[in-house]
């Protein structure tokens, strides 16, 4: 039984209003923000991921759970920064050049954030040089790229080539995903990991940073 059951339930059920009010109340009561993250939000998003994996949840449920989690995080994030709580790791994420699809990428970003990662979302249609710039600036442990079109998948390879050209390929783990992307494609372009679902992406990211 997780602590802070009402917050946990609100996130799993995708009830953003309750998630927000429960977080407000708990913070007012003096509960530590880091504890809310580790004992309510992370287990809740893990449960959401588990339900997705066993086909109980689908994209709509993931979207509303992510929204509830974000409502809570809005309140928790400033406190985390103030109390110096360190994220699991930092992730830079974006949809590659030529591709405007962002629902899948947004879900992965939300699941990672709910999993305790600090997430910098570069948005859609991100050219290789912007990924390179963000890696240099944010020093993330992980770079996550999404592509929804077979025609934009090659931009993943271009981005990895750009990381190599900038001499920073070994400073970051690259993970890729999106409907047309496969494990063998990921291997072929020299990515460090591939995930076919948003929830598995969290497990993958944790494994790659050794946590």
């Amino acid at each position: 039984m997780p602590r802070y059951q009402d917050l946990y339930d609100a996130v799993v059920d995708g009830d953003a209003k309750t998630a927000k009010s429960a977080t407000e109340r708990l913070l007012q009561q003096g509960v530590d923000a880091g504890e809310l993250l580790s004992d309510a939000l992370i287990p809740a998003m893990d449960e959401v991921g588990r339900r997705f994996e066993c086909n109980e949840y689908f994209v709509p449920e993931l979207l509303i759970a992510a929204r509830a989690m974000k409502a809570a995080m809005e309140l928790i994030r400033p406190k985390l920064a103030a109390t110096g709580v360190q994220p699991v790791a930092t992730v830079v994420i974006g949809t590659v050049k030529g591709d405007l699809h962002d629902i899948g990428k947004n879900l992965v970003a939300a699941m990672l954030e709910g999993g305790g990662f600090a997430v910098h979302d570069l948005g859609v249609d991100v050219p290789p040089e912007r990924f390179v710039g963000a890696v240099q600036e944010k020093k993330p442990e992980i770079l996550a790229m999404s592509a929804l079109l077979t025609t934009t998948m090659p931009a993943m390879r271009e981005t990895i080539q750009a990381l190599i050209a900038a001499g920073i390929r070994d400073q970051v783990k690259v993970i890729v995903g999106g409907a047309p992307v496969t494990e063998s494609f990921a291997r072929d372009i020299g990515a460090d990991g591939y995930s076919d679902t948003a929830s598995a992406a969290v497990q993958l990211a944790r494994r790659l940073v050794g946590k």
Binding site: F58, P60, L100, D102, I103
Partner: peptide
């Protein structure tokens, strides 16, 4: 997909 509310509409339309 550039219109505000598209993601919401898509999520609802999947049911």
């Amino acid at each position: 997909h550039r219109l505000p509310g598209y993601e919401e509409a898509f999520a609802q339309a999947m049911a």
